[in-house]
């Protein structure tokens, strides 16, 4: 098991290296001169050249990728110029490891930039995740147990209705009515645990979390319902019934355990994707997270930030995949040996 985890982590690192290589290639395939954007609109060619040099954009891209990779491991200096270091060390800015580059638009190291945004997106994703997992699985199980009845149809139908509403509509609705018009909750603005305590943090995440949860929940209601129904027709459930187990025990111990595997797969990937930022929801609620950063940096051609974001998201997905695979082994003993 330990060897398996090490092996998976190793392949994960290789995947990240390949990802960064591809992203860098795409970075240079785009018709954008990053130096020009950093310098400003009416910038003389000489100055653009100087900016390119300071940020390292003048080198061929495989070399730049190498510098980037070294920066991730060891950190790097801008500009990388030994002569300048001697003559005017105060002009050199250091980017400590792990250095993902320097955003010439926001005038900040990408790592620092991401570090500020990660807690916001991660908090939002986790709160939404907990809500939709609890809601989706329990409603899905209820629908399966009452298959064909009004409750079943109501649950599945309602979840589909929420799925059909776009998140920006749902987000705006939740701000406009429960928050502003009815005053049931305050209009959310992100508060960290350090600033507002656990309650302040949670209460501000409620509405944006709900917006996402209502959207994601539909899939979980349906998949839980389908897999609970499937496992209910398994022979081993007949055995459990023939043993004289109480219906509650059959449901929670025998049926749900078997239905869990596909749900874990889906949940791991959905959570990983969401950790990288909920683009629309963050915009609607004006949360300054990774999703909003992604939109802003794409619009301003802030390529170092885009590269950093892509790698971060890739890392989330890779880590989530490893965790899901480990969870498989925990859930299903047949996976452990083979």
């Amino acid at each position: 098991m330990f060897a398996y985890v090490v092996r998976r982590c190793f392949t994960g690192v290789i995947m990240l290296i390949v990802m960064s290589f591809v992203t860098y290639f795409l970075f240079f395939a785009s018709p954008i001169d990053p130096g020009r954007f950093a310098c400003g609109k009416s910038c003389p060619p000489a100055l653009i050249k100087q900016t390119d040099k300071a940020l390292g954009f003048d080198k061929p891209w495989p070399v730049q990728w190498k510098d980037f990779a070294i920066g991730v491991v060891k950190g790097r200096d801008y500009p990388e110029d030994p002569a300048l270091r001697k003559s005017a060390p105060e002009l050199i800015s250091h980017c400590p490891a792990p250095c993902l580059g320097y955003s010439q638009v926001n005038l900040i190291n990408v790592t620092t930039e991401l570090k500020d945004k990660i807690p916001i997106s991660v908090s939002l994703a986790l709160v939404a995740f907990v809500m939709w997992i609890i809601g989706g699985i329990s409603l899905g199980a209820v629908a399966a147990l009452t298959k064909g009845s009004i409750i079943d149809r109501g649950v599945v139908g309602t979840s589909l209705v929420f799925y059909a509403f776009p998140t920006f509509w749902m987000g705006l609705f939740l701000i406009e009515f429960p928050a502003i018009k009815w005053g049931l909750v305050q209009v959310p603005s992100y508060t960290s645990i350090a600033d507002g305590g656990v309650w302040g943090w949670l209460s501000n995440l409620f509405l944006p979390g709900l917006t996402l949860a209502l959207f994601y929940m539909a899939g979980y209601v349906r998949i839980t319902r389908a897999f609970v129904l499937e496992s209910m027709s398994e022979d081993y459930l007949r055995t459990a019934k023939a043993k004289g187990l109480a219906p509650r025990k059959i449901l929670f111990k025998h049926t749900m355990r078997a239905a869990l595997t596909p749900i874990v797969t889906l949940a791991g990937l959905d959570l990983a994707g969401l950790l990288g930022g909920a683009i629309i929801t963050e915009q609607v609620f004006n949360f300054n997270g990774l999703g909003k950063l992604a939109v802003d940096s794409t619009q301003t051609f802030d390529l170092p930030t885009v590269v950093g974001l892509v790698l971060l998201l890739a890392a989330f997905v890779i880590v989530a995949n490893i965790i899901v695979d480990i969870l498989y082994a925990v859930i299903d003993p047949r996976v452990r040996v083979g």
């Binding site: 022979d235 081993y236 007949r238 055995t239 459990a240 023939a242 355990r257 078997a258 299903d332 047949r334």
Partner: peptide, 15 residues
């Protein structure tokens, strides 16, 4: 008590 035809599918694979 009842025992069934195919003991592999009649036992829960996860326990």
């Amino acid at each position: 008590a009842m025992i069934f035809q195919d003991p592999l599918s009649a036992m829960h694979p996860y326990y």
